[in-house]
Write a protein that binds this DNA or RNA. Sequence first.
RNA 1: GCCGGGAUGGCGGAACUGGCAGACGCAGCGGACUCAAAAUCCGCCGGUACUUGGUACCUUGGGGGUUCGACUCCCCCUCCCGGCACCA
Length: 846
Amino acid sequence: MPQETQANKTTRDERFDPHSFETKWYERWQQDPSLYRAEPTSTKPKYYVLEMLPYPSGALHMGHVRNYAIGDALARYMWMNGYNVLHPMGWDSFGLPAENAAISNNTPPREWTLRNIANMKAQMKRLGFAYDWSREVTTCFPEYYRWNQWFFLKMYERGLAYRKKSRVNWCPKCATVLANEQVVDGCCWRHEDTPVEQRELEQWFLRTTNYSEELLRDLDKLPNWPERVVTMQRNWIGRSEGALVDFKLEGPAGPAGSTITVFTTRVDTIYGATSVQLAPEHPLVADLAAGNADLSAKVSQMMAEQRKAKEVGDIGEIEKHGVDTGRFAINPYNGEKVPIWVANYILMDYGTGAIMSVPAHDERDHEFAKKYGLPIQQVNQPRAASEPVDVQKAAVTTTDGVVINSGPFTGLSCEEAITRMAEYAETYGFGKPTVTYRLKDWGVSRQRYWGTPIPMLYCEKDGIVPVPEKDLPVILPDNVEITLSGGSPLARVPEFLNTTCPKCGGPARRETDTMDTFVDSSWYFYRYADARNDRAPFESKIIGYWFPIDQYIGGVEHAILHLIYSRFWTKVMRDMGLVQNDEPVQRLFTQGMVIKDGAKMSKSLGNVVTPDEMIARYGADAARLYSLFAAPPDRDLDWQDTGIEGIQRFLGRVYRFVARHASATRVAASHETGQAPSLPPEARAIQRKLHQTIKRVSDDFQGRWHFNTCIAAIMELVNELYAVEDKIDTMAGPLLAEVQRDLVLLLAPFAPYLAHELWEMLGEGENLLRAPWPKYDPALAKEEEIEIPVQINGKLRSRIVVPADSDHTFVRERALADEKVKAAIAGKQVVRVIPVPGKLINIVVK
RNA sequence: GCCGGGAUGGCGGAACUGGCAGACGCAGCGGACUCAAAAUCCGCCGGUACUUGGUACCUUGGGGGUUCGACUCCCCCUCCCGGCACCA
């Protein structure tokens, strides 16, 4: 054995070559496809960890690597802790970039997409991510999208899918319609410099608004979602409580009827209403303007103005103006006649498109009334008025007040009046309490080729006819000419377009729009649980076992779009009896972006770092470990090329240390004796550090996920091992063996290649993924002596070393006896001594 | 305007419940090894002042406060990032 130690010393400067062993393990892992498979049933507890599936754009970027490194570390940790882990991966593979590539490279979208998938899958494998590929989901395959179509039919049956003509967002670059969620600052979410146009089109919608209330309420069931995601969804749903009140039109009524229903959150101020304001697009406006050329012209001008403002995204900035229609409406509470105006700041798509204008108690109404000389009438007196209020000067908008000049409601508090007056309206049939939402139905039609065909037919005789379930899937044809003009490419494929009506057997044509790709990603994670089912999207019993997802990890950019649609889809499936869970995701983690030199990586800035070059230079482990080490995972990560070199150095230090002492460990392991005899102090220090490190890493996995500090802790352990390495041979063998094994286990979730290599080097035959996570012993982690800082009047003046379990009296005596302390308090009076057990002592002197 | 999040050395970041500010890493400086370089190993590394060791003072975006003690709590302000917004 001494000779062997000698031999090891000679390998001290052995080069650390991650590529040789990463290649070796990569090949071994490819040979065993069952390695990361989840067990269909198990006595172990289940754990479903999921990273957001990528769009197959061509190659992974560092943001992907970071996302998957977090998920992979967690999956490996859970495996080592004895869980039945489901850790799948798939491809969100429908979408526009494939069509754009088809146009620019003359490559069919399918071919382009599948090539990208192959490339990215190879990258993932090379990075060592532990996915259960037997459950791979590719959304552009008929075996997947047929279930999109199936769900669509089920929603149609339940009245949740419907077709209507409406004003929709249109991106001229995508040549298709966008959902409200896909419009960012008035521009397309894909083309941030392209303003969205408004077009009138016949479209398919899903009734997300049926679930507005539940989508909002159930946010309370998600305590383990990031606060900001919950807030963003809450804002997006935009619940507002108020009342509907009917104002009767005075004089002749047109086709739009004789009632103007207004929505208000402040019905308590209705006695102060001095006009009614309509949105230019309000149906009644056409009636009122009929035969009035001047009014018609002004109204169409306002419509144009609103549309333009909406496109540019600065609705809210435009100057308020309006026009008096010359007609009147009756306030149902007091019978008063108020003029009806049309105003450019009233939006048809919020509330009812009509408001009552109360200039005394609303700032916008006040501004408007001032401009046009409309009367301002106070009906609300604030309680805590420091100076006399003058509603002619400024609106009083507080709800902390008392209702005045309001007939039978005079004297009520605002809050009470809001309730009582709405009830009153309901009793007398001219209104009711109500709730409105900002959330709109989800427009899912896209005038594009590379997506799921919407399974609907149009028959001249029978109208809209759903494709019978037995005829699914409606296959997306190949060889379609793709252009970005002239509407849906599928409309130019006669073989696809023309079919027969299943009801009457007569000629029918197919719907040529495809589904928004967010449909694909709204339920893909259910498919993973039962990915090869060809009779149903999945078996409910299997969903019952795996759901909800224990941990979902992805970018915060999906906080609204994908995550609200997924929640909606789950609730619909639950109401269909397919799943039992109300929510798909138990815990959500949103990781920060990877940036470089303070900016998002982009080709135009030339600051792109690719995983391939990082693997080539430093290896997969280093790329993964650095993406976890450089910043806490929830924050943005500023990529520094020199930073990853430090990680590579660290991995080399680990490798060399274990390599140098592996044989000693193997020998020790072969005649393990159980509890070591009392250790020499240096060995005890190492043991203590080891157990402290195990605690820190384990705790972080349970709670904060600050993997940057976990890795720092492991670095500290390795630094300590190096500091005593010269003496390590004289230390007890079993301890060295324990340290080496545990060090490798601690690194296994973060740097799997290195960990596997060293595990084998230590003579461990067992699969590392199934090796038990090390346990720490609090007694062994505990310090025997601690250093106590001594403060005088809150300033650090000295430090003393005392046994860890010293009581206060002892610490106090030692502190007061300290030379530096004595000098500092000489001639002064000790007023108080404040102990912080185990932490610090502060002496207050005068 | 409203709602979140953030600002700490030359840089990325640490300090978890009010208790040693700057862990760990990068960059930098010095040393060992080497003919030399790379690699590796060891040491130093917030600022200012003074006689080196050392000691004192300053320092967590700015200003005030609470406290024996504040990166951490409270009030005011500045800047940055994200969401919502004529929402009635």
